[in-house]
């Protein structure tokens, strides 16, 4: 490092930019010293090498993937044990970690999506203790003892959940980003209706809503935004599962022979 560069560093050996970054991360005083200590002790390249070695070992099925964070002393570590898709899991997280980040980054369950991270889109919807909730506004620390179901936990082995089947049948998505949240939400919605829960557009109160109208399904699904606008087909899919009566699919996967035939027809 040249003298010229050294001039840019402060007492902690940081550049003004690094200084600003740490400020933005809210790292001050003790937590800042600890962070710098950790980085300094290992050095970024050592960190990276360790991670790569771990990943390879994991791929070879040797050790469970344990993020570096697990070994470093976290400033506000919280140990949480909860069920995810029927399996008991236990993780130690920084108190700031959301359930969404824990599922995606720590438990390798990337089905739940991060759309807005602010409770506005529903892409992160999961079912906790039988209720649909937003995993982006749920602190993992608050999940002790909970029973969480994500999109990965809906199918039984190779058999899709009826709602998943219906989404495929009605082509209820385009890019698919909102879909895991839509499906979790729809599954929970039908349970809510079964329990006789009302909504803003349910006209009678105090009665079991026997049948959800289209408007009622729309209202109850309003917490799930779809940028691709697949709403009409999402509605059809939910309606079918709700009614339990099959209706003809609007499209089908092409069968191998069918494609060949069309090509032949064209060349004739």
């Amino acid at each position: 490092m040249t003298d010229h560069f050294e001039d840019l560093h402060d007492a902690e050996g940081l550049t003004a930019d690094e200084e600003k970054l740490l400020d933005e991360l809210g790292l001050e005083g003790e937590s800042r010293r600890r962070f710098l200590g950790q980085v300094g002790a290992a050095g970024f390249s050592v960190f990276a090498l360790q991670l790569i070695a771990e990943r390879e070992a994991h791929a070879a099925g040797e050790v469970p993937l344990e993020p570096a964070a697990e070994r470093l002393p976290l400033e506000n570590a919280v140990k949480v044990a909860f069920k995810v898709n029927g399996e008991q899991r236990s993780v130690t997280v920084d108190s700031r970690t959301t359930l969404l980040d824990t599922l995606r980054e720590r438990l390798d369950l990337t089905g739940s999506k991060k759309g807005c991270d602010h409770g506005q889109c529903g892409a992160c919807t999961v079912i906790a203790d039988g209720r649909r909730v937003l995993s982006c506004l749920t602190l993992a620390a608050a999940c002790e003892g909970k029973d969480v179901t994500t999109i990965e936990g809906l199918a039984k082995g190779e058999t899709l959940h009826p709602m998943q089947d219906a989404f495929v049948k009605y082509d209820a998505f385009q890019c698919g980003y909102c879909t895991p949240g839509q499906i979790c939400s729809a599954v929970a919605l039908l349970d809510e209706a079964k329990r006789g829960e009302a909504s803003y557009v349910t006209e009678t109160t105090g009665n079991r809503p026997a049948k959800l109208s289209d408007d009622d399904i729309r209202e109850r699904m309003s917490g799930n935004i779809c940028r691709c606008g697949a709403y009409p087909n999402i509605l059809k899919a939910i309606k079918e599962v709700h009614k339990g009566e099959e209706t003809a699919a609007t499209w089908n996967f092409a069968k191998p022979g069918l494609l060949d035939k069309e090509v032949d027809d064209e060349t004739v």
């Binding site: 649909r132 909730v133 937003l134 939400s185 929970a188 803003y200 109160t205 109850r220 917490g223 799930n224």
Partner: peptide
């Protein structure tokens, strides 16, 4: 009161 609560936010948020 039921109606007012149902008019707010989304099902997911009201569950939380």
């Amino acid at each position: 009161l039921s109606q007012a609560i149902f008019a707010g936010a989304s099902a997911q948020i009201r569950n939380m």
